[in-house]
Simulated assay, not measured.
Amino acid sequence: MKVCIIGGGNGGQALAGVLALRGFDVSLYNRSEQRIERIIKTKKIELQGSISGITYISFATTDLREAISGRQLLLVVLPAFAHREIALKLAPYLEDGQIIILNPGRTAGALEFYTALKQFGVDKDITVAEAQTFLFASRITGPGVVKIFGVKNAVPVAALPAQKNTILKDAIEKVLPEFRIVPNTLHTSFANIGAVFHPASVLLNAGWIESTSGDFEFYTNGISPSVAKVLQAIDDERCAVAKSFGLETMSALEWLKYAYSVEGEDLYEALQLNKAYKGIKAPSSIDNRYILEDVPMSLVPISEFGKVTGVRTPTIDTIISLASVMLGRDFRKEGRTLEKLGLLGKSPEEVKRIMEVGI
């Protein structure tokens, strides 16, 4: 199996290093050279933390065509706001039989990506899929050095169209045994835990982040009992929207047990007990991917799906509005709206079908 990692940030370097350590032929692509300059020269990635070791990938490059040529599995490890852009950049170079997995897709990522390729006129026999979340909690600690704080027990993943789940399963079962195939992308999209944990925690800690440049532990110090109540309200709304489409998705509390084997009386206690989150610092600014990615590409589409079935999402809508005011942007307009996803005016049943078979 030849694998290409698209994105040389925290997650991309961690995933490239781990898959190389597992014995796979790995290439690494990043748009700019600066972040991967050391890896380009040495081909070496040093892993620290939960998975450690020094490993070597086949090559790193800023040439996307070179990076994906002859590679069966393309793992996109980029913020969700870059999914459409990278789909259009990949479109001219894709080859029959390639499998593209968004790590993660956030909400409706595979649909946005799949639709972009169709609009470009791609007629190759490819498979597009999305993971529910990213496999690791990781941070770059130096050039070519990445620390993995924790590894999830399991990550749901689904293909679009869902009939390609068999192809997906055959490709990933040895490469990424942590991945678990679920029926369709409705399951992965509504199980978006980043939407619950990230945006509100940043906004409610904005003063602390801006006064210390994020010099505190994000999950341990930043999520107090009162902040956890807001996260719980967001989670309740997310689950209510999923239920309106006939899905019984895991709550955030259930997911922490599923992914990290952590249990608690409530969300606050479970987050405090999660060893995988220990040592993870807060972002240094509120202008970061926890807002730029998780508001428009997670909270906005969840709110939009709620409109289809008449489920109100007042807490989610408040966080969207607050983020827009604090960053001076219209995240509702920028985000994955029903119109942008080709779902405007569709019935709940039509939306369910499109999320399963595509447009």
Rank of each mutant, 00 (worst) to 15 (best):
Q119S: 07
I99V: 06
N205E: 02
F120I: 14
A171P: 09
A162D: 03
L160W: 12
G121I: 15
A159I: 03
F134N: 13
V122W: 08
R180F: 15
K124A: 14
P92K: 09
G150P: 04
N103P: 00
D125C: 09
I126V: 11
D170E: 13
D170N: 05
K147S: 04
I193E: 14
K89I: 06
P143Q: 11
F179T: 03
E130I: 01
Q163M: 14
A108Y: 05
N153S: 12
T188V: 07
I167Y: 07
Y114V: 01
L186Y: 13
K152S: 00
Q119W: 05
F197N: 03
V155N: 00
G121T: 10
L94Q: 10
I181A: 14
V202P: 01
V151W: 01
F134T: 13
R139C: 09
G121F: 08
V128R: 07
L204H: 03
E112L: 05
H198D: 02
F113I: 09
K118R: 10
I126C: 13
A195Y: 00
N205I: 02
I193D: 08
D123I: 15
R106I: 02
P161L: 04
A158F: 10
N192V: 01
A154C: 12
A171G: 11
T133C: 13
I140F: 03
I99N: 13
L176M: 12
V128G: 08
N153V: 05
P161M: 09
Q132S: 13
I172H: 00
Q98D: 06
L94M: 04
E173T: 10
S201V: 10
V182P: 10
I148K: 00
T141M: 04
N153Q: 13
F136H: 13
P177R: 06
A200P: 07
N165G: 05
N103Y: 08
H187Q: 08
Q163K: 06
A91S: 14
K147F: 07
V182D: 05
N165D: 13
L176I: 07
N103H: 06
V196P: 08
T107S: 07
A191V: 00
